[in-house]
């Protein structure tokens, strides 16, 4: 299974500068139940598509600066980037197919 990397301000820039074209970020919080419900779905998507995109997550309590920089005002939010540019924003909890499609559209 592909690794979902936990990001904070210490490793965020390095992750975003990695050479993979498509990067996926999940913004979440420990007190947000839909975020907890999304976690296994996200891990599954990362497991299936980890070869074609790199997956990471940001705990907004630990890295509010990163959430602020992307204008996150709702969790869970998943952002899909291609070549460093945001391509898709998925707000709220959705079925797995929504995330799979978003990543497949980007690769």
């Amino acid at each position: 299974m592909a690794d979902v990397k936990s990001l904070d301000t210490s490793n965020f820039d390095a992750f975003m500068q990695r050479e993979e074209q498509v990067k996926v970020l999940r913004f979440w919080a420990t007190w947000c139940r839909p975020c907890i419900a999304l976690e296994p779905i996200y891990d599954e998507v990362a497991g299936e598509l980890g070869e074609r995109a790199s997956f990471a997550e940001v705990d907004i309590d630990k890295a509010p600066e990163i959430a602020g920089a992307f204008g996150i005002r709702s969790v869970p939010t998943v952002l899909v980037f291609k070549d460093g540019k945001p391509l898709d924003t998925i707000i709220g909890l959705h079925a797995k197919a929504r995330y799979v499609d978003a990543v497949n559209n980007a690769v």
């Binding site: 919080a29 007190w31 947000c32 139940r33 839909p34 975020c35 907004i60 204008g71 996150i72 005002r73 709702s74 969790v75 869970p76 939010t77 924003t89 707000i91 709220g92």
Partner: peptide, 16 residues
């Protein structure tokens, strides 16, 4: 504006 100020979950998004 859903996710950018519009929400249906106070316990999720109240933080902001």
């Amino acid at each position: 504006f859903q996710g950018f100020g519009v929400s249906a979950c106070a316990t999720c998004d109240g933080f902001f």
